[in-house]
Every structure is written in structure tokens, then in C-alpha cells.
Design a protein around this nucleic acid. Structure first.
Lengths: 344, 344
DNA sequence: TTGAAAGCGCTAACAA
DNA sequence: TTGTTAGCGCTTTCAA
């Protein structure tokens, strides 16, 4: 096993003190150019690598950012956001630790605790669908660890948040449906515990209202389980007395599944039923038909959330820094799953 | 800011020594039941959380597992494998740090270095497509940090590996194509720097051979860029003098894109051209047509790789432990993208 | 500009 | 079974 050198080894060899080596390595201004040069050279020569544990322990701070997301599989959004986070983290010299809550509150709590115990510099969290209590976040804040919520936020606790305009996205895509001539709209919503579900639902409802539709009759099927049983959902849609001619799904993955089941039953899309999703997953463009969706700036959400977190982590006056609540724009992408071929 | 208690605080309050508290907390056998109870009670009362940095520094070991994967977006496989890793890690009390290399060698090196500097207990790596040098892995090994390669391995360095039977999967799916009556097969391979590309390619070739086909004529289009330009690939396929009637793509994502472009040109699948993928991404089942693919035990790869890594990390005699080279089975899933409706 | 010394919070001999 | 002591490798006063 290769010997691991420490600042002590460098100090001995250079006949200077540990402290000077430590300073030199961190590019402290109070170290002469020559000493620095010598230290760096020796460090290079010995292939010295700073012991981060010791460094963090002594300085009482880490360069770790903890990220907790619900689930990474099947969610292109989170993969993208993560890339954004990692890009910023890298630029600023932080290391990212990613954990999944699997949409479970208890797991989210465990992960946050573990991260807090690892003395992370800050926490980036997208809430699980079960999260209706926020003590675990408060614990982090109490320990002076900043928390920034991204995509899935809440107004139950005061922290910075970077989200997307879910309401407007839903409103716009619903409007698009209406303008395409669909008359009897349905919505497959997510669990109402999630703020994004609520906002998308509200956007849907308000778009109906603003077009003078009777929202009482609007068909809404709430899928508490995000990986819905599309088969059942489709059954429900088709068994309505007044069959819907368009359905707005709260996620792209839902839309994909719904489309499959509709096609299996010989239902033409969009002629017999239009289907729209939400998220802007690139896969929607590769489907047949291509799926209309609401694009989210996933990467950018990650970037902004991470930037803000680091700003809060490095601030010496968090009090006056306050919190931000950034809402990034969404954009609808109309495609053939909602646009009839000869309908214009 | 909430006060953070240490073992010192507990010791003072209980009028015992720090060491006893430390032992009690770790459930050391040499501590009386009563003392333990008292310590745990006080720890609970003060909401004591062990400082992992200090603990790790003193014990010269961490409970961190570093994972480096090429890219998480668009790769259901890695998301799944990650879940398997996290499950095992959690069971055994480890924390997982995930990094992406973005298929770049330099980035992979950086991540490995960062992880090594964080004194991880072990490294789980799936090589980037550019990785053709292994000094960074050797550095980790030299520091006595075990490395286990998963999915994307190499025989250039001696470490444990958990992979999948890429060769057989490719062989079987090609055979399936042949048995379905396709005659002129093409293969869209990945970069040959990747062992998985090589093996899948070889499986394809050998299956042709074993059926007495002329492999010299086999159409192979190598996509060095994993996110291939499907449009171009399809062009190439269609411009062959002897147009292929089936194409085996080295990934599901490739297959999805190829299918889209074929359909755009009015080519019927599988009548005019059959398309098969590789990976077993659940999305393949939701596509139209459903895509034949080769299933990989993604979650299980993660589980096995993590178990092995932890075994190596916790072993006090790595020498005699040696290395393993576990190859998990693949299974082909024939679906309608390769099975003609009335073809049996 | 440099060094000495104390200490971050914990673990781990060694003694008692 | 418990306490004492000495670190782990670094940062950070305080003095020089």
C-alpha cells in the first residue's frame, strides 16, 4: 500500500512548520512566494492529497452538498436537474451526494439526517409525495445548514425554493387543448399532497373556467400512486357517460402509458382522444404519436437551486440574505398527440 | 442555532469518561448494561448525533461508497443499478456518493480522485466510453481502496467485476432474428472502446456464423457517439445495396430512435425491417411497436457489485479474498418489433 | 512571514 | 468494566 503523505511530511522535508505548509496549500496571502513554490513542489513530488476529513473537522465545514430526490429512474427531469446541480457544484468546489427517498417520507427523513450528520454544507431537496411534515428540514436549518427546495416545494416551511410555473404550464396546455377544439377534457392528476399536482390541477381547472366550461363536470382522476395503473385509468376514462375527447396527464410517463392502453383498445390519437403530458421528457418526441407536453427547464432548475444554496451556505449573514422563491417558466410543446392532422 | 452536543457533553452529565460514552454508543461489549442505557438515554435527550467526520478521522475509515457512472439520464439501467447499490449500502450502514463521468475519461479521473480524497471505503465504477487508461483506478487500489467494476468492465486491470452476459444476449437476440426468418441482418454497435460494445458485436457476428451466414457481408455501423444520430444511421441502413431486413441496436435508446426514423420514412416494422434493442428498459414495452430487447438484471448488478465491494472493504485479508468476475445472465424478450404477426 | 500550541470530536491502546 | 492518554491530519489563534 502506497504511503499517504500529510502536511507533516512536507513540513519535515522542507524544514518548515505544519502551519506554514497548511497555509501555503490553501494559498493563504501571508506566505512568501518562495515558500509556496517549495511547498507546492514537494506536495507534487509526494503526490500529497489533503485529508478532507481532517480538514473539514478542523475547519468545521465541508464542501459537501446533499441532494435528496424522490426517484431517479423514469424521471428524466431529475437526471437533468442533477446534472445542473453537479455542474455548479463542481465549479464552486463542492462534492454532491445524491440520495433517493423513493417517494417515502421516512426514507427522506433518514437521508436528510444522514446528510446532516455528514455535516453537509447545504441540502437540495425535492420533496417526496408523502412529505407532509417538515421537522427534518427544520433540524437541518437549526444546525445552520441551508436548505433549498427544488421543483417540489411547499409553503409549509420557510426556505428558498426554485420551482417551475406548474400552474401556467397546466393552464396553457389545457388552453391549447380547448383551442384545438376538444370539448370534454379529463385530467389525470398526481397525489394532491404534492404542490406540483395541486398547481397543475388548478391550472387545468382555471383554463376550463376561463373558457366558460363547466368545471363541475370535468373528469379528474387522481393517481395517488405516481406510477399509475394506466390500464385502470383508461378504463375509467372510457367508461364515463360522456367520454372525454382529450386528457391532460400530470406527467409524461403517465401520458405514455395512457397512450399505449388507448392504442391497445383501438382508440385513435388524437382523433378519438387527445393526450398531453407534462415534463418535457425527450422521449415524448420519439413516441408515436409524438406527445404534446409542457417543457420544464430541468437543467436550469438544478443550476439555480445549487447556486442559491451555495450562496446561502457561504453567506455570513443568512438573516439578511433571506429566502428566494424563484419560479422558472414553462413552455408548451404542441405535438401530434393533441393536434389533429387537418385541423387547421 | 441549536447546540450540537458531543460525547463530551454526555460524559460530563453522566459523570463518566468520554471513552465509555464512545464505547456505549457503538455498542461495545465491554460496557455494562446500565451504563449503556444511561448513555443512550442521555444521547436521546440531547439529540446527540455523532460527528462522522471526527469518527472517520479517528478510526481511519469511512462508511462512504463512491459510485461513478457514465450518465444517468436516458439510462434506465444505471438508475436501477443505483437503486440496488443503495439498498445494499443502506443495509450495511454505508452512504453512497454518486458521480457522473459524462462518458469522459478526464471527468472520471477527477471524480475518482475526489472520492479517494474523501477517503471512501470503496469505489463502484462503470467505465466511461473513453476510458482506456486505468491509472486512476490503480491509485485507489494503491491506497487500499477496493474497486469493483459493474456493467462496463475491462480486463486491463485486475479488480472484481460484475457484468452481464452481453455476448450471449447479443448472440441470442441475433439468433432470434434469424429464426424469425430475417435474412440480411445489420448491427448498430457502440464504440468499440467499450467492452460491452465488443461483446455485443461479437455475439452478433458469432450468431451469424453459427447459422452459416456470410459475416463479411454483415452490415455493421459503429456509433462512437452513444447518443447516435439515428437519422444518419437509418440513412446508411437504407442506402445499402442489399437493404437489411433486421437491425440489432446495441441499446434500447438507439432502437427507439431508429424506429422513429424508420416510421417517419414509411417503413413498416417489423414487416419491412425488424428492430431489436438491448437493455430491457421498461419503456420498450410501451412503444409502438413494442420493442424486442435483451433484459439485464440491472438492480441485481447493483446489489451484487455493492455486496462484493463491501466484502472487500471490510476484509482484513484482501489478498486471499482475491477478485471475482461475476457474469449475470441476460434474457431476450421477443416483442412485436421483430415478430411478424402471422409468422408462425 | 513564520512557528508553537491548542483543539476539532472521535477512537483506541493501555492501565487501572 | 471504566478511565487515561495519545493521537487522527488538519486549521487557527496567538506570539514571535
Amino acid at each position: 500500500m502506497a504511503k499517504v503523505y500529510t502536511i507533516h511530511d512536507i513540513a519535515i522535508r522542507l524544514n518548515i512548520s505544519k502551519s506554514t505548509v497548511s497555509r501555503a496549500l490553501r494559498n493563504h496571502p501571508d506566505v512568501s512566494k518562495d515558500t509556496k513554490a517549495a511547498v507546492f513542489e514537494m506536495a507534487e513530488k509526494l503526490n500529497y492529497q489533503k485529508n478532507i476529513l481532517a480538514s473539514n473537522l478542523a475547519s468545521k465545514s465541508t464542501n459537501l452538498i446533499g441532494v435528496v430526490i424522490p426517484e431517479i429512474a423514469r424521471q428524466h427531469f431529475f437526471a437533468q436537474a442533477l446534472s445542473g446541480i453537479q455542474k455548479v457544484a463542481k465549479e464552486k468546489g463542492y462534492i454532491v451526494m445524491v440520495c433517493q427517498s423513493n417517494e417515502e417520507l421516512q426514507e427522506e427523513i433518514n437521508q436528510v439526517r444522514a446528510l446532516v450528520n455528514s455535516r453537509v454544507a447545504g441540502l437540495l431537496i425535492s420533496l417526496s409525495k408523502e412529505t407532509d411534515t417538515f421537522g427534518h428540514l427544520q433540524e437541518a436549518l437549526d444546525r445552520d445548514i441551508p436548505v433549498v427546495l427544488f421543483d417540489r416545494g411547499t409553503d409549509q416551511i420557510e426556505v428558498s425554493q426554485v420551482t417551475v410555473d406548474d400552474y401556467k404550464g397546466a393552464f396553457d396546455i389545457t388552453n391549447h387543448l380547448i383551442h384545438e377544439g376538444y370539448d370534454n377534457l379529463a385530467h389525470l392528476s398526481g397525489p394532491m399532497s404534492l404542490s406540483i399536482s395541486q398547481k397543475r390541477y388548478q391550472g387545468f381547472i382555471d383554463a376550463l373556467k376561463s373558457s366558460g366550461k363547466n368545471t363541475a363536470e370535468a373528469i379528474v382522476y387522481q393517481c395517488d400512486n405516481l406510477s399509475l395503473d394506466a390500464c385502470e385509468a383508461v378504463d375509467r376514462l372510457l367508461s364515463q357517460k360522456k367520454k372525454p375527447d382529450a386528457v391532460f396527464c400530470m406527467s409524461d410517463y403517465m401520458a405514455i402509458q395512457v397512450i399505449k392502453h388507448l392504442k391497445d383498445r383501438g382508440i385513435k390519437i388524437p382523433e378519438d382522444m387527445a393526450v398531453a403530458g407534462f415534463a418535457g421528457d425527450p422521449i415524448t418526441e420519439l413516441m408515436d404519436p409524438q406527445i404534446s407536453t409542457v417543457e420544464q427547464p430541468a437543467y436550469d432548475i438544478g443550476v439555480q437551486a445549487a447556486k442559491r444554496l451555495i450562496m446561502e451556505a457561504e453567506s455570513d449573514d443568512r438573516e439578511t440574505l433571506g429566502f428566494i422563491n424563484r419560479v422558472l417558466p414553462t413552455a408548451i410543446i404542441p405535438r401530434s398527440s393533441t393536434v389533429k392532422k387537418h385541423s387547421n
